[in-house]
Nucleic acid binder design. Structure first.
Lengths: 340, 340
DNA sequence: TTGAAAGCGCTAACAG
DNA sequence: CTGTTAGCGCTTTCAA
């Protein structure tokens, strides 16, 4: 029905092989025939069918992006970086929301393999994610984005992350410098490596300052607002009353602030709160959130660039890129209230 | 390299046609051979190559989604609905960010056509979008999402939108009921039909209440926070001082609120603000935003369902779905301040 | 520099 | 119910 390489060949009076050559610049074609072919292409408004070429070339110029949930601003920022890079390098991305489910992740992976994507960008990995290991075994090009897993020794792997230990550290240190001593720490799932690293940073800062760590106020949950909300309420019913919170992401921090408001505490006068990520919400909340800034779009872009180079055979796997992070101080943190 | 239908056929001792038959349940196969084939498939861990089947079946089970920017929460909500429906019906989506550029839109469209997507879901359309008309002419399955264009007479087209006239109306009416008379209206681009419709709703409410419409405070810009910010500042430098704002989306409303804060006005005590969309930001802002609630994920889901039915030939084009909307009253609106 | 022809992995008549 | 075979549209040897 639509115009094919045969139509072009006929019109240009050459063979389809020649048309293919000018299309792919794969081998020399005389100027004259090239021009003929190009003209035919233009006249017929011909565009090669990628499916057909994918079948022989084994390249679809399509990447799979696995994220938990695109409506989470952290992931939509990552996705934007990924899509921008894809576009810049002539690729497209298929987006998949896994909702933190390993089964969904596995299902998507096998589907995308059937669709012959050239590689995967994965932001859903648990620290020991079986699906990833499987992919690695099969030598499928992939890069982890904002996540890392524990197996780098066995298989070389690419990952683009930010410095989460530092992130946990500077968030905590900031509060310590403001005089806080009882600092609660509400992190995301312990199954996700970044949270373990942020916890390390938190512990490091606490230890350096010789502050006591209370396990009642150091917990792992998820990345949702409700977690921060409920956990803060729970904590304030207990005996350890923190004057500050370090959190796993901005949504959790917003949840904490909401809980605080509920029980009549003011941020930052009574309690200080530090977020993580610096999503757009962070600067619009009341009060605007002091938070650890991750360069999300940049991470997405770099990860995709790495992957594409890997696919093109321009490099081997095994590179870990750690982006720097920094603290953005806004209005949700202040000096510890005097307890006289 | 990987296992093909030939390997399965050989192992099961049948022809590839038979394997294909059990794969696609396309015609009857005896129970016995079916079982043999299924066993071979399992043993070889075979998964059909979608690229190959796409070449013959002319179906990729892949949809193209065109949105301006996935980091905009409105579009990420739509995208989530689209992806959920796609997944439920066995499709995948390729996401493209057009940044409101018709050129980018056109480039993506032709690329995706080459990749043989089965259809398009488009949230980027201007009211007279040439790219869309082109697609329509070529009889490419597509559905407009949250957008509409002016050509329904020539070509039948599907669209899922919400009732924007009503949206503009109830937002304005709410303010009028609170006693406001000078109501500013800051809408998105006039090139996008929804904004014209919301304007209609605004004008209708104003007219009903016999209120004067000042063109100085009824403007079109874009959907960004900066627009609301700058426009609000501009307006308060002028002679018409509104006591309330109706806006084109929540981001614009947040921009307005920020501007108001800058010039020392309090929301809602001095000025009331109504947003549009009800993105997650709306309930987290200070004060929480009264806004027109659109069912974004539902819109995305329905649009995708429509498209897939169209692709499967279960229905013809030409359906317009208009979802209802409602006003969510929060804390950014209150009675007009007395002017004594 | 060019063309003929053999696939890529699968589907879909057509025959039997 | 099953096998043979001719493509789908393109790339890529291999010869010429």
């Amino acid at each position: 029905m639509s115009v094919t390489i045969y139509d072009v060949a006929k019109k240009a009076g050459v063979s389809i092989a020649t048309v293919s050559r000018v299309l792919n610049k794969s081998s020399a074609v005389s100027d004259r025939t090239r021009r003929q072919v190009e003209e035919a292409i233009k006249e017929l408004n011909y565009a090669p069918n990628f499916i057909a070429s994918a079948l022989t070339k084994k390249s679809t110029l399509t990447l799979g992006l696995l994220i938990p949930d695109i409506t989470n601003p952290f992931f939509s920022e990552l996705a934007r970086g990924v899509e921008d890079a894809s576009n810049d390098f002539g690729f497209n991305i298929i987006i998949c929301n896994t909702d933190y489910s390993l089964e969904k992740e596995a299902t998507y992976i096998s589907l995308l393999k059937q669709k012959s994507v050239d590689g995967f960008i994965i932001s859903t990995a648990y620290y020991n994610d079986k699906n990833i290991i499987e992919l690695l075994k099969d030598n499928v090009p992939l890069v982890l984005l904002g996540r890392d897993i524990d197996c780098s020794e066995e298989y070389p792997m690419d990952a683009v992350v930010s410095d989460n230990i530092k992130g946990g550290y500077i968030a905590t240190k900031h509060l310590i410098d403001l005089g806080h001593e009882k600092i609660a720490c509400l992190l995301g799932p312990a199954k996700i490596k970044v949270n373990l690293e942020r916890e390390k940073g938190y512990l490091k800062a606490m230890k350096e300052a010789k502050l006591k760590v209370y396990k009642e106020i150091l917990t792992h949950g998820d990345f949702k607002l409700e977690f921060g909300y409920k956990e803060a309420l729970r904590i304030f019913k207990g005996s350890i009353r923190p004057t500050a919170f370090v959190t796993g992401n901005d949504l959790t921090a917003l949840g904490v602030m909401r809980a605080l408001k509920t029980i009549g505490l003011s941020v930052p006068r009574d309690v200080s709160v530090v977020g993580y990520d610096n999503i757009i919400l962070a600067e619009m909340s009341d009060p605007p959130l002091t938070t650890v800034n991750q360069q999300m779009q940049k991470m997405g872009y770099l990860a995709t660039e790495l992957l594409i180079k890997r696919i093109k055979g321009e490099r081997n796997a095994g590179k870990k890129v750690v982006l720097d992070i920094n603290l953005v101080v806004r209005k949700s943190t202040s000096k510890v209230p005097s307890t006289n």
